[in-house]
């Protein structure tokens, strides 16, 4: 007999039962259990029971009579049934969109989010074209991060557990893969990539790691522990780390650079960075952005990607560096 059928029958029987059902009754009643010996039936039932419990089916063990000598099993309806929820049409549409998001695996435990939405489906009603609130056509492309890595990091951040993994950093010289130990403080998503922020034991400071560059599995340092392995500093603010731009990474003391953008590009720069930096519009449609620079190399890369649409005003030394960099490029391209 099919295992799925056996388990559905078992749930149905225990849900319907008014009193706890004994092992003997289960064995006698459900066809899938009857042909084996008592010992192998018990093993089979134990496996089924723990599998159902893992799925969240609340199987209770209760004494069958007042003497409490024999136990039986029961699924209390009030603990099994998902309460009915009355959603507005707008809320239904929004939740159907979440379903699309979860199929793109954008967030940790998106598969589980999909399972939750499946359970909500009776209350979300017809998802097909039949209803006039059909979800707008929004779609989500799949992510590059491995689901199990993202899930594990998220769990570690919530339970404050130290993890280790092999990470390939892209730095100066050759990107080397090294094992890292990390106290993860949080996760952030920016420009389509997930980052994990935390205290890096190797560097002895708070660092961000791009999740897609983790090459190994993510393991707990103390697999048998329950956490917490560390305490997140009280003054840690994830949003302060989540907005770090390449030219704000590490390196030297921060200073402010003023960059003018042409009318052609200023509107894009303002949209992109206007909430991070001071941006002042100019009458011609251009504008001046005040950028915080800690990593000059990354800053030069970025500002030169705007070619003649960006001009570094100050500081003078930085302006000079841009000019020298451009001269070097021209020179490297040879005569003609």
């Amino acid at each position: 007999m099919n295992k799925v059928e056996r388990l559905i029958d078992l749930i149905a029987m225990l849900l319907q039962a008014k009193r706890p059902v004994t092992l003997e009754q289960i064995r006698k009643s459900i066809p899938g259990y009857d042909q084996s010996s008592m010992a192998s039936f018990k093993r089979m039932f134990e496996r089924d029971k723990s599998e159902l419990r893992e799925m969240g089916v609340p199987i209770e063990v209760e004494p069958v009579d007042a003497l409490g000598e024999e136990v039986g099993y029961r699924i209390p309806k009030e603990e099994y049934y998902l309460p009915e929820i009355d959603f507005t049409p707008e809320e239904k549409v929004a939740l159907l969109l979440v379903n699309r998001l979860s199929s793109g695996e954008l967030t940790p435990f998106s598969r589980e989010a999909g399972a939750a939405l499946e359970k909500l489906s009776p209350d979300l009603g017809e998802g097909g074209g039949s209803c006039n609130t059909a979800p707008p056509r929004l779609r989500f492309a799949p992510m590059r991060e491995r689901e199990e890595v993202l899930n594990r990091l998220w769990q570690a951040a919530v339970e404050c557990r130290t993890v280790r993994f092999v990470y390939r950093s892209l730095g100066k010289g050759k990107g080397k893969a090294r094992e890292r130990e990390l106290d993860p403080y949080g996760l952030y998503l920016e420009r389509g990539s997930w980052y994990v922020v935390g205290f890096c034991h190797l560097r002895g400071e708070i660092r961000s790691f791009r999740v897609s560059r983790i090459e190994s599995e993510v393991d707990f340092m103390r697999p048998d522990g329950e956490g917490p392995d560390f305490a997140r500093p009280a003054d840690f603010r994830l949003e302060e780390h989540a907005r770090i731009l390449p030219w704000e990474f590490e390196e030297g003391e921060p200073y402010t650079a003023k960059v003018r953008f042409s009318p052609r590009m200023a509107w894009q720069v303002e949209r992109d960075l206007g909430d991070v930096y001071r941006f002042e519009g100019m009458p011609d449609g251009g504008g001046v952005l005040e950028v915080t620079v800690r990593n000059e190399e990354a800053f030069l890369n970025w500002v030169l990607s705007y070619a003649e649409d960006a001009e570094v005003f100050s500081p003078a030394e930085l302006r000079e560096k841009v000019r020298r960099r451009l001269e070097k490029i021209v020179k490297s391209l040879g005569g003609g």
Partner: peptide
Amino acid sequence: YFARPLRFTNTELYGLHLACSALAKLS
């Protein structure tokens, strides 16, 4: 007896919260 679906597990509830807050931010 199957009138209602099974309740959420903790990870399902977590996952749903994360997906909803992500979409709320993105949309």
